[in-house]
Write a protein that binds this DNA or RNA. Structure first.
Lengths: 213, 213
DNA sequence: TTTACTTTAAAACAAACGTTTGATACACTT
DNA sequence: AAGTGTATCAAACGTTTGTTTTAAAGTAAA
């Protein structure tokens, strides 16, 4: 049992490091985040990063866990509603994970940040998270607009939906200056989700009409 | 006249510095761009940056010139077509400036980059460029959907339009991995502009219906 | 207690950054 | 011809970064 205590102590610092890393990385991004700041918040020595993980980059990779994002897609797929309804649900849940600061879902923010400033682990993130949920939305869109849509146009529809969602996160520094009073509270996120949902469904319907006139 | 020669030589290095800075800043962003790289490309000494400008930041501020972006808005306003048509024109021209690598319009890319990684001159950029063109699009949207729309909903419409456009630039590293063959040539940009235009006009019509049922 | 191993700690390392220095070359004025 | 101010240059400065080192402390087994 003493062994367990020792391991658990060691695991404690490892976990503290991971927790602090998640926070700092999501706040400052991979590049701006410093190992010193992470260790300071975790209250561990600077050398701990290279002791438990081998590098800052490996620590960053270790903080990645996109399961909640992917289970979101699965759960929505299991719901037996129509494609339109599922798309609305996805937009809502995705925005919640993306914008709600209270909810613990830093993974989504990593994904968002990676779009703008790619890090060495971008490949992993694209493969494990971004590609699957893009595919998920692409499937929904194809169901909605019909199978006659071309690959290129389908891709643009997916980009239109993600672009609208991501702008609220990417543009946050700018949006904050344009509209200082705007806060992403629960009510605002609901309103944004409804807007993007309505806007996109109407857009998709138009694209569908363009395809088979 | 000898004085003129001397001054013009001096101006030459100053201009070479500015030109190189525009390129490097737009390629790598403010933070990632190094003074050494800028000077290397301009073929001037490192000290030139702090000699002609006082700092890297002031050099960056000196590269900013949003006139072409604002004249774009004015030109579109002078056209006497309907609001829908003017919005389509704006989306097209904006995307051209944003995505076309051949056309020399780094300013738009600065604006885009600033969204994701704000620099100390973000305030200036928001004030001089982003706020005006957001206002420009907001006016167009209000013309299209009618005056009953709330400020909040109007804001979301503008974000939807810019979000769609910006995603192609912000998401470029990711998009490149998702669709390696995709290139932003002239034809592709035209297709993107048409897609976002159709998608958005349909979205706006839907929002208008929501407002006055 | 002694031994072997793991974990922590402070300090130093090497590299990269923006910036500054001090010397040098040049053009122009007096 | 001497003096003045400007432009350029190589070199170094002071920080900050991720990483490594080296030794001490702690822990479990012999």
């Amino acid at each position: 049992m003493i062994t367990e205590t020792k391991i658990s102590l060691s695991e404690q610092t490892r976990e503290r490091l991971l927790a602090a890393a998640r926070v700092v990385f999501s706040e400052s991004g991979f590049q701006n985040a410093t190992v010193r700041e992470i260790c300071r918040r975790a209250e561990v020595n600077i050398a701990a990063v290279n002791y438990y993980f081998n590098s800052k980059e490996a620590l960053f990779a270790a903080t990645l866990n996109f399961e909640p994002l992917l289970t979101l897609c699965k759960q929505i797929n299991q719901g037996s509603t129509c494609a339109q309804e599922r798309l609305l649900n996805f937009i809502h849940d995705f925005l919640m994970q993306l914008l709600d600061e209270k909810e613990f879902s830093v993974q989504c923010q990593f994904m968002a940040r990676e779009l703008a400033e790619p890090t060495p682990v971008l490949g992993k993130i694209v493969q494990e998270a971004i590609a699957p949920i893009h595919q998920f939305v692409a499937n929904l869109v194809r169901e909605i607009v019909g199978k006659k849509i071309s690959e290129a146009e389908l891709r643009r529809c997916v980009f239109s939906i993600f672009g609208q969602c991501m702008y609220y996160r990417h543009g946050q520094p700018v949006i904050q200056r344009l509209h200082p009073k705007l806060r992403y509270d629960h009510r605002e996120i609901e309103a944004i989700a409804k807007h993007i949902g309505d806007f996109s469904l109407a857009g998709l319907k138009q694209i569908a009409q363009n395809q088979c006139p």
